[in-house]
Design a binder for these strands. Structure first.
Length: 429
DNA sequence: TCTGGGGTCCTAGGACCC
DNA sequence: TCTGGGGTCCTAGGACCC
């Protein structure tokens, strides 16, 4: 009996990807319990040897050291991860150009209709790609083949690690009967809880409901699409190429303890704007719009959305615009715990057209590092002694140390905070 | 665990217009 | 001028993902 696939969609998922990459880069780590994310204080990725010790993702490092002193905590290396990711995409592309780079450790491929070209069944093609990935990268992969992305996702995590699972149409019900509704990609915690409370604990129970039931219970397009995909319909397409292009740039940071001091909160926001601009310039982009927000101690958000007069990539000029509207979100007597900024409507540098009044020309000349501080300082005057004093800090020789300390800042640092955080403001690079 | 950081997509609802 | 119906466009915010 030939297995039937209306579409042949494959999902590849690197097993314990970060930890595995680090084990490949350093052979002394192989076969050992490796944990990454030490710099954050909790585990980001764990090797299978580490998982076998009962350790799990999100576990505090302190606890890990207590439970498993033999565990090796290694700093993250995002450059290495992305090199491996690119190799992974390249290998899959040797078989088909229809590859979606979904994330740093996952991709989808559409191999529909390729049996004749390779003289193999879909299952054989998939096995062939899987073996090549594992041999070339030294990382094992969970691989799933089905007729939709959602089903392929179910398949790739069905057997771990190094699993290969096929879900042709005739096996859908069997597999989904063993798939918890919480584990279905796209439904999330809220949707999963809701379905569970409606008496739908598995994906099989879900696909057995009809369209009317979905509508009556308030399920909308994203859930309906997932429902269709689980039934085997190809709804969510494999998106070739487009991934990797940046649509928006965001920077957010929580600070502790929370604060109600306007100048401090504004400086936090400045820091985020600066960091976002660094990323923006690195990508050769400028933003025509942005939004910024303050997050209160109660986890409510207050945001302002604004268009920029011209496309910008420098923090100083964005901050001028932001300052004018900062008080729309900031209120005295309220404790805030985080700020954030999102740069949107991005355009490439080359596509930028100078505006009518020569603003563009003026801006080109203003690329000095201290420009931002000078202008802000002049603008705010006495009301922001804070910024003025930070200017001194910026020019002080111990800048590198101050920057470094910022990472793990402690309560004591708070007393001196004003001179610690501000160096970030206006360092244009 | 009193709740990280960086993204995308969808939708309800307001503004505006016939 | 008022009322109602019905489009379109835009945005804020929610939910989800890794």
């Amino acid at each position: 009996m030939a297995a039937s696939y209306p579409k042949a969609i494959v999902h590849f998922d690197g097993d314990a990807f970060f930890a595995s990459v680090l084990q490949m880069m350093d052979h002394t780590l192989r076969g050992k319990p490796v944990i990454t994310g030490g710099e954050r204080g909790s585990a980001t990725s764990l090797s299978y040897e580490a998982k076998a010790l009962g350790l799990h993702r999100g576990m505090p490092m302190q606890e890990i050291r207590r439970i498993a002193p033999e565990a090796i905590i290694v700093p993250s290396d995002y450059t290495a991860y992305s090199i491996y990711a690119r190799r992974m995409y390249a290998i899959v592309r040797e078989f088909t150009p229809k590859v979606e780079e979904y994330s740093i450790d996952e991709c989808f491929a559409d191999i529909t209709g390729l049996e004749d070209a390779f003289g193999m069944t879909y299952a054989e093609i998939v096995l062939c790609i899987k073996q090549k990935l594992e041999q070339s990268l030294g990382v094992t992969f969970g691989v799933g083949l089905a007729s939709s992305k959602t089903l392929a996702k179910v398949a790739s995590k069905y057997h771990k690690p190094a699993g290969l699972t096929l879900i042709p149409t005739e096996r859908i019900e069997e597999i989904l009967g063993q798939t918890a509704i919480y584990d279905v990609w796209g439904l999330g915690g809220v949707g999963g809880t809701k379905l569970n409370s409606l008496g739908v604990p598995t994906a099989l129970d879900f696909i057995r409901k009809d369209d009317g039931w979905l509508k009556d219970n308030g399920f909308v397009k994203p859930q309906r699409d997932t429902w269709l995909e689980l039934k085997g319909y190809y709804i969510n397409p494999v998106r070739v190429g487009k991934h990797g292009e940046i649509g928006s740039v965001m920077k957010t940071r929580t600070f502790s303890p929370p604060s109600m001091e306007r100048s401090f909160i504004f400086s936090q926001l400045s820091k985020n704007v600066e960091a976002a601009c660094v990323k923006l310039r690195r990508a050769g982009l400028k933003a025509r719009a942005l939004s910024f927000y303050l997050k209160t101690q109660e986890f409510t958000y207050h945001a302002v959305q604004m268009d920029l007069p011209v496309a910008l990539s420098t923090a100083s000029e964005m901050l001028e615009c932001i300052e004018k509207r900062f008080d729309e979100v900031y209120a005295t007597e309220i404790l805030y715990r985080a700020t954030g900024v999102t740069l949107r409507a991005l355009v490439t540098d080359s596509a930028l057209t100078p505006d009518l009044f020569g603003e563009f020309e003026k801006r080109v000349q203003k690329n000095g590092s201290f420009d931002a501080l000078d202008r802000l300082n002049k603008k705010y005057g006495n009301s922001t002694v804070f910024l003025a004093s930070s200017l001194q800090a910026l020019r002080a020789p111990e800048l590198p140390r101050a920057r470094k300390r910022r990472k793990g800042f402690l309560r004591q640092d708070l007393e001196h905070k004003k001179s610690l955080d501000i160096p970030f403001l206006g360092i244009a690079r």
